[in-house]
């Protein structure tokens, strides 16, 4: 199944989803689609004004352009997802997940879609890590 991960650029979540037999839907793959488009020359990411306008499907024009641009990249991933694994309070969310308002909206969009999802907290101890990995494993193995 196609499993959306949040943070969408997390290596750990990408690895776990793949390891337990599913296809992770990540920002890396979405960005690869954009940067490999040879018809667009908008370095570094080839996000165009048309993409930002497409973001209006997820947020209104009064919302800052950076949020609409981000949602234009991730929104379609959520649209395509069959399930989602979400890690909350991750201290690492840099790069393409640098805007907290966009990150909040992503979590909401997943919830609004109503697909199977699991939300785990960021582990600080070995015991918490066992819980996080154990829960994610069970969730992923339980997906049909």
């Amino acid at each position: 199944m196609r499993v959306f991960i949040d943070p969408p650029n997390s290596m750990i979540l990408y690895d776990l989803v793949e390891r337990f037999g599913h296809e992770p839907l990540s920002s890396m793959a979405a960005i690869q689609e954009m940067i490999d488009n040879l018809e667009v020359d908008m370095p570094p990411m080839n996000v165009t004004i048309d993409d930002v306008v497409r973001g209006l499907a997820y947020a209104g024009v009064e919302v800052p352009s950076g949020i609409r641009g981000r949602l234009a990249v991730w929104g379609p991933l959520i649209d395509a997802a069959d399930a989602a694994v979400i890690m909350t309070d991750a201290p690492f969310s840099f790069g393409c997940v640098g805007c907290e308002r966009s990150n909040e909206m992503i979590k909401y969009l997943v919830r609004r879609k109503g697909i199977p999802q699991i939300s785990v907290g960021y582990p600080e101890t070995a015991e918490q890590a066992e819980t996080v990995v154990g829960m994610i494993k069970e969730f992923l193995e339980g997906l049909a």
Binding site: M42, P44, V47, I49, V52, P64, S65, G66, G69
Partner: peptide, 14 residues
């Protein structure tokens, strides 16, 4: 900066 790459304005800045 924040948001330049996702707002399609980074190439304009450069």
């Amino acid at each position: 900066s924040c948001g330049t790459e996702y707002s399609s304005v980074q190439p304009e800045i450069e």
